Simulated scan of single mutants.
Amino acid sequence: MCRFLAWTGAPRYLEELVIEQKQSLVEQSRNALIGKTPINADGFGLAWYSPERTVPCFYKDTGPAWSDANLKQIAHHTKAGLFMAHVRASTGTATSRNNCHPFGHGRWSFMHNGQAGGHDRFRQRLDAMIPEHLYTQRLGATESEAIFLIALGHGMAADPVGAMARAVGQVEGLARRHGSTPHMRFAACWSDGARLFAARYASDRYAPSLYYRHCRKGVVVSSEPLDEVAGVWTELPPGRAIELRRSEVIGHDFDPAAHAMHEAPLPV
Rank of each mutant, 00 (worst) to 15 (best):
W233E: 07
S24A: 02
L152A: 01
W48Q: 09
H214V: 01
R240Y: 08
A80V: 03
T54C: 10
P160T: 04
R195K: 09
C100I: 07
D204Q: 00
A230T: 05
D61K: 12
E235T: 15
Q23R: 15
N99L: 01
E248K: 09
G173W: 11
R213H: 06
E235H: 04
I150S: 02
L139K: 12
L5P: 15
Q73C: 08
D159F: 05
A187Y: 11
A202E: 03
G63N: 01
M129R: 15
H183R: 10
S24F: 02
A230G: 02
S191A: 06
S109P: 04
G104Q: 01
D42M: 02
S191M: 05
W66T: 07
A65F: 12
L134M: 07
I150H: 01
E145M: 07
T62L: 03
T62P: 01
H133P: 00
E15R: 10
V168E: 00
V171R: 00
P267G: 02
P267I: 08
L82N: 11
C2H: 04
H154N: 15
H252K: 02
R166C: 04
H178S: 08
V171G: 00
H178I: 01
N98P: 02
G162D: 10
F254C: 06
G104S: 13
I39N: 09
A175F: 05
N40E: 09
P256K: 01
G169E: 14
A199K: 00
E243L: 10
